[in-house]
Structures are given as structure tokens and as C-alpha cells.
């Protein structure tokens, strides 16, 4: 079982609703990994906005950079000070 699926089970969330959903991970406030994105809405050193299926993720901080991207994953580095989900 994958790390994410295992986490979903431990949180007691309905498993079927979260398969194929988005996941956002922060690493010590210095890097972020986003899975299940639907594109990049805007990029600046202070804020990166990532489109998800229904919402957006606002990652704010300093010196933010997208270092790698593919169809489902985005890797971001920089000093991350906040994350906000919303429309």
C-alpha cells in the first residue's frame, strides 16, 4: 500500500473518494511536492498558484521556483511561508 493510501486509511477518510485526488506535501518549509495538478496558474518568487481539479493551491513564500514538472507532479523549492486552498 502506498504512503498516501496508507495515510488516507489512517485519517479514516473514505478511500474511494481520494484515489486520483491531489496531494500537497511540504518539506521543512523549504520544498513542496504537489501531485494531481491541472496546470500552473501563476508563478512569481513570492507566490505560486497551482490549479487543481476544482480548486487552486496558493503557495506563498520567498524565492519560490518550480524546478521540475510533468503531467501529474510539480516540485517547488524556496522558503515556503504559507499554503492556502481555495477558488
Amino acid at each position: 500500500m502506498s504512503f498516501f493510501n496508507d495515510t488516507v486509511l489512517k485519517l479514516g477518510l473514505p478511500h474511494d473518494n481520494f484515489v486520483g485526488g491531489d496531494k500537497v506535501s511540504i518539506f521543512s518549509g523549504k520544498g513542496a511536492f504537489i501531485e494531481g495538478h491541472k496546470g500552473v496558474f501563476s508563478v512569481s518568487e513570492e507566490e505560486i498558484v497551482i490549479k487543481l481539479k476544482k480548486e487552486k493551491v496558493y503557495i506563498s513564500g520567498n524565492g519560490l521556483k518550480i524546478t521540475e514538472i510533468n503531467a501529474s507532479e510539480i516540485y517547488i523549492i524556496g522558503k515556503i511561508s504559507g499554503i492556502l486552498r481555495g477558488q
Binding site: 490549479k51 521540475e68 510539480i74
Partner: peptide, 17 residues
């Protein structure tokens, strides 16, 4: 944002951006 969305949406792998 436009370039990354365009290319990642087509399934391309981009690195060292």
C-alpha cells in the same frame, strides 16, 4: 505559468526549470 501548463498538460517531463 503558460509554458509549464501547456507542456505538462501534454504530459511532457520538464526538469531544471
Amino acid at each position: 505559468a503558460f509554458v509549464l501548463t501547456l507542456l505538462s498538460g501534454r504530459g511532457f517531463w520538464l526538469k531544471n526549470i
